[in-house]
Design a protein around this nucleic acid. Structure first.
Lengths: 298, 298
DNA sequence: AATTTATATGAATTAAATTCATAATTAAAG
DNA sequence: CTTTAATTATGAATTTAATTCATATAAATT
């Protein structure tokens, strides 16, 4: 069993595409095709189901892939052990997180950690579609409000994210917004066209009182939603921590502070095996000692 | 971390010699030297202590070697898993055992097992110095009367080996051997020159009655000791199971059947990790259900 | 001191993986 | 229902990297 063919197969198993595997490993698609074929020949068993253009692992392939998870993790661990002895070697740790949380709250709270762990190089990938980063090991772990359930993924609660409905004081005055039903006649700013972004708001309100938005404007970034509200374009719905300052400055007003809106649970999601790596232990220890309230912006 | 350099390092770690590693991997000594050097360079750490001609692992080297044990065992396991799906693939299992026990008793008892496990190819290495076969993974496990203690080696008791003092009826008559002290004036046949082979005999006898051999003849194989006794060259000391037939035929006589001689404990010694491999489980299960008495030749 | 045995090293060689160029296949788009 | 774009397969050419060769160096053994 050739170890490099195995490595190629493992990478392929995560993405199920030869072209993508080639990109990840910085080689040509042809190399991947040759490599996997040779592995199959040497083991005398089909690992990849090539029906049409869509590729999938065979039963044997799935089994071998599971073994690969262990094998390559052990290699990873061995590397960490060796590098720990190497004073001048920087360990690398890559965190994936949602864009807004990552760029503001996370970065802010990690300052101390980064200063105290000079032997650790922290990289960040901010995205709102974190699943594949986690599964393909492009990150060591992710911090996400979406759920990721799998037998080999551990989830660690961090905090509940509160949402607020916001608008500028002028907008509220001009449009005379005092109650929920008023939202039906003003522009609703949402990440998506359909207003699904407001889901947590809507499900928190009794169906009889729930406003039916008539006028939804899409703005595809949270910072856009915030600035849109500040400029008086409409009403926005955003995580509370993103607008703590704006509300304090009276640039924005929390429209319905009395409402108990559904919160999102932010968790760390990490492959169980990776929990045993020191670098992950350290930063997770650090993150879990931060009080939930600090994360939510208070 | 290059996986083939790692494999080379792992093999080296077992034998601590570049030349020997080269032999095992069927490459030149130069290749090993280059390979280990490159690995050290890529990890930026010394793995091998090259003081004089004798090589040893550094602390980092030992740590990496331990990791290798896990890594390459996982690969072994992965292989077994895949090959199990392959109907026409023969699994290989190599047993190491002492020469006499292996060539007679073991072979005899494994007949049924071999017949019932056609998908398993059994190989045997018979030697009286089994340690290195075990530690270098040249065998899957060994059956030995010598002790092998290590944190990662499991031992499983099989049976006690009884020894007997034997001579031909003619020899006994001619030399009028009736008591222990008679042994002092006849040729003593021993595997070694010094008569250490008779250790189990001597320690079993009170020091006051213990004979002091005057005339020791070395014969370097047990079968030689037996045939030497049959031919009337002298008195031999051998495991009981080796001469069951000869005693029955009256070719040999058990000289002091009333003595309670020290026995040797025969055990299976196997690297703990290997216990989880199916092929090993199967044969060990089989061996441990055989009654000790059957092993000792009754 | 001489001989044997073991490791180190740079250059030459060899082996094997990768790329290149292109065909074949299929999904997606118009 | 074409056309286009994207993906995999394949054999030959190329490139890369490991291995050998030839030899030096060093230590242990006789």
């Amino acid at each position: 069993m050739d170890l490099y063919q195995l490595k190629t197969f493992y990478t392929f198993g995560k993405v199920l595409s030869f072209t993508e595997t080639a990109r990840i490993l910085y080689v040509s698609q042809s190399a991947i095709s040759h490599s996997i074929k040779k592995l199959e020949q040497s083991l005398e068993i089909k690992l990849v189901e090539r029906k049409s253009k869509k590729l999938a692992l065979t039963a044997a392939g799935k089994e071998l892939f599971e073994s690969c998870e262990t094998i390559f993790f052990e290699i990873e661990k061995a590397k960490e052990n060796i590098f720990k002895r190497n004073r001048n070697h920087l360990q690398e740790l890559i965190i994936g997180s949602t864009v807004e949380f990552g760029t503001t709250i996370l970065i802010k709270h990690l300052k101390t950690f980064i200063d105290n762990n000079k032997n650790l190089k922290l990289d960040f990938i901010f995205s709102n579609d974190l699943s594949r980063y986690l599964l393909t090991d492009k990150v060591d772990f992710i911090i996400d409000c979406k759920k990721h359930f799998s037998h080999d993924i551990e989830n660690i609660n961090l905090f509940h994210e509160n949402y607020v409905v916001i608008a500028s004081p002028e907008f509220i005055k001009d449009n005379k917004i005092t109650q929920l039903s008023d939202l039906e006649r003003v522009p609703i700013l949402s990440l998506d066209k359909e207003g699904l972004w407001w889901k947590n708001f809507l499900v928190s309100i009794n169906i009889s009182k729930r406003p039916r938005f008539k006028n939804i404007n899409q703005i595809s970034h949270i910072r856009g939603l915030i600035n849109g509200a500040i400029e008086g374009i409409g009403v926005s719905f955003v995580p509370q921590y993103t607008v703590v300052n704006e509300i304090e400055n009276n640039a924005l007003v929390n429209l319905f502070p009395e409402l108990r809106l559904k919160t999102d649970q932010f968790c760390i999601y990490i492959k169980k095996k990776k929990l045993s790596l020191d670098k992950n232990k350290m930063i997770i220890d650090y993150l879990t000692t931060i009080k939930p309230a600090e994360f939510s912006g208070f």
